[in-house]
Amino acid sequence: MLKKMTLKGKLLAIFIVVSLIPLGVVTFISVKKASNSLQSEVISKLTAIQEAKRNHLQYYFERVYAAVGIIKNDPYLYGSMQAFTEAFESAGKTVNDTAWQTLVEFKEPPILSTVEKYGFYDLLMISPGGYIVYSTKKGKDLGMNIPESELKDSSLGLAFQKIKDNSEGILFADFGGYPTAADEQAAFMIVSIVNRLNAVLGYVAIRIPVDTLELCSKVVFEGELKKK
């Protein structure tokens, strides 16, 4: 085909090809730069989202920790724990008792208000002997003895054992399967409730299910996307 072309045509074809080479190079470089820029932008967004999630979760745990520090000195909670423990033991260490159930109906509303105020998922009251004498969720763990049941090796069981050995401060037990909740992942914060003589009256534990953290992450993720 080239043999049939005139010299002028051949020169024109060569000129066009030579002209297209720089254009192709420029186009390639532009696409490469755009791709790198897009990649950098995506990485930047993901980094920002991860950082926001980390900060939000840290804030959540700090808020729960601070709230536990407040409620451990709540006189109403203090009195309720004593009352629930006494009713539980008087009933033969069971919650299947009219007196205990009536007491809960009477004393529970302010406790539920506290739980709602601080955004707790579940608040448990535990006797010095390890019995769960009250729970806002009233799950299968209610009435169980932590050291003598399937809860022994759970996060709650480990936290309970640690705080019995050292009743000062607030203890955190990391996420692990919770047997009475179909082994769903849960963490716990637990604190001792003591009287003026520093005698331990019992313990308050806050259950933190993994769903709570997933919800926090979802809220942060959607918020960051809206910003972008």
Rank of each mutant, 00 (worst) to 15 (best):
A173R: 07
Y178E: 09
S167F: 01
V95D: 10
G176Q: 05
S217G: 03
T136F: 06
Q39R: 01
T212Q: 13
K137W: 02
R54S: 15
L225M: 12
K226P: 01
L46H: 00
I163G: 08
V194L: 07
N198Q: 15
R207D: 08
N73S: 12
D141V: 12
P22H: 04
M5R: 06
L151F: 01
K8Q: 05
I126K: 03
L201E: 14
L11H: 05
Y134G: 00
F120N: 04
T47W: 01
L46E: 08
R63G: 02
F28M: 04
G130T: 09
D122N: 15
M189E: 11
A199L: 10
K10R: 15
V115A: 13
N96T: 09
T6H: 03
G223I: 03
S127M: 05
P109G: 04
F160H: 09
A48T: 07
D141P: 04
P110R: 05
E222V: 01
E184A: 09
A187W: 09
K117I: 04
Q50I: 00
Y131A: 02
K164E: 13
S44V: 00
D97L: 12
Q101E: 13
G129P: 04
M81Y: 01
D183S: 12
A205M: 04
F120D: 07
V133F: 11
A52N: 05
E105S: 15
I208Y: 05
L103S: 02
A186S: 13
N96L: 12
E108H: 04
L142Q: 13
S113R: 14
L201Y: 14
K162T: 13
S217M: 02
P179L: 03
T94L: 15
A48I: 00
N198V: 11
P109W: 11
P147S: 02
I14V: 12
D174R: 12
A13N: 07
N36F: 04
N96G: 10
L197A: 11
A181F: 08
S40W: 01
E89Q: 11
P109E: 02
T102F: 00
L77P: 04
G177N: 09
V64H: 04
E184W: 01
F28Q: 07
L11G: 15
V191A: 15
E150I: 13
G9S: 10
T98F: 14
K72L: 07
A48V: 00
G130I: 09
E105N: 15
K32W: 02
A83E: 13
A182H: 09
Q58G: 08
V64W: 01
D174V: 06
F188P: 02
I193F: 05
G223M: 04
T136W: 03
L151K: 02
P128E: 07
P75W: 08
F84G: 00
K8R: 04
A99I: 12
Y76T: 12
F160Q: 08
S19Q: 07
L158Q: 07
K107V: 13
E214D: 10
K93S: 15
N36P: 02
M1A: 14
V68G: 07
G139V: 11
G130F: 08
G119H: 09
D174N: 13
F120L: 06
Q58P: 00
P75H: 09
V104M: 11
L23V: 08
